[in-house]
Design a protein around this nucleic acid. Structure first.
Lengths: 195, 195
DNA sequence: CTTTTGTTTAACAATTTTGTCAAACTCAAA
DNA sequence: TTTGAGTTTGACAAAATTGTTAAACAAAAG
């Protein structure tokens, strides 16, 4: 079966991705996805058999893409503080592009109980936590459970994006103003993590 | 219409609340809600006319309940640092009870575009931010945009609960272990906010 | 005890969303 | 140009979810 590659399959996937992660429409219907992509709804079934399969594919690709991006940072051999600064920068850039990807992953993890307790990930996390521990031993980072350090770091980076609509309303800010606030956070998070 | 009050209406509402906020089943069906409550599905329509109305009621009550709890803390006249310590304690206790309430509110805010830009809330937030500003002027808190201070505070408190399933998997922890980690956070957040 | 009123139930109807299929279509190869 | 494989479409079927109604039921009032 040699495909003629009209780009439709990818278009559907990209559109779904955009609806889910950029617009936050986590429960978009096949009809809504098809409309947004400007194609016939049946094509969703033609290319992906079922909505669930499309769902899973988009979900996994999104998760893997994000994880890979972070891995590049984790695996790099730069000094700890630089690594963190880099992580913050990459994380916030990625999250600004797809603000709802996090929310999506969280919600799904919750529905599916346990999906991936991938060993490889556990290994990398452990390596990073040991790295944190070393910095603490050297007295360069406030001593605490390394897991708390990670929770702090990711909380400070991710949560303001998850709650963007809420905080825009509370603070009375528009999109641009909030984007600036997020940009300013890069430095602020760094300073909060390393006082 | 004098009700006979069999407790069914409240039971349905409580069950929905539990499914939504404690179990994270944000899209529980009327059938699922009825089953969990051990009542006939039709009763959902009898008491609430439609699923949407039940939905809205539970949502609003949850939101108001949470907001009121926090208001008690905000309105109290204790010294700033004590107020923050109290806020952390209350916030974490409430969130531990209904871990997914936040997620729910966020998701809904997102669907409904703008629901409440309540003036009253804005006023209280402003008052609190001025309070923060004063502390900064006194040099008791690291100087920054007060909104960033609030983002930091709420991120550190809320996010580890939102991402609990994720982090339990990553860290290889069970529920109790994670609960302990959350309990330890109270002090840690305080120290992170006030280095 | 009978009536009344509010509650519960099962059967049914309507709606929404998803999946299937055959026919129409398109483009490249024969 | 004709053939053929992949693509697109509309009509239809199936499934899932929600809403309605009439009748059965239970408890308080008369």
């Amino acid at each position: 079966m040699s495909t003629r590659d009209t780009g439709t399959e990818q278009l559907i996937k990209d559109t779904a991705k955009h609806l889910f992660f950029a617009e936050g429409k986590l429960h978009a219907t096949t009809q809504e996805i098809a409309d947004a992509a400007g194609v016939n709804r049946t094509l969703v079934n033609y290319y992906f058999r079922s909505r669930d399969i499309l769902f899973d594919q988009v979900f996994n690709e999104a998760q893997e893409g994000f994880v890979c991006t972070l891995d590049e940072v984790f695996d790099s051999k730069m000094p700890f503080k630089e690594k963190i600064r880099n992580l913050i920068s990459v994380f916030i850039k990625e999250t600004a592009k797809y603000p709802f990807r996090q929310l999506f992953i969280i919600t799904e993890m919750n529905r599916n109980e346990l999906i991936n307790a991938k060993k490889s990930r556990t290994k990398k996390v452990k390596a990073f936590m040991e790295e944190i521990q070393i910095e603490m031993d050297k007295g360069l980072v406030k001593k605490m459970d390394p897991r708390q350090f990670m929770l702090n770091l990711f909380s400070l980076m991710a949560h303001p994006f998850l709650t963007a609509p809420l905080h825009k309303a509370i603070f009375g800010m528009n999109d641009e103003e909030y984007a600036i606030l997020m940009e300013d956070r890069k430095q602020l998070i760094y300073e909060t993590i390393f006082p």
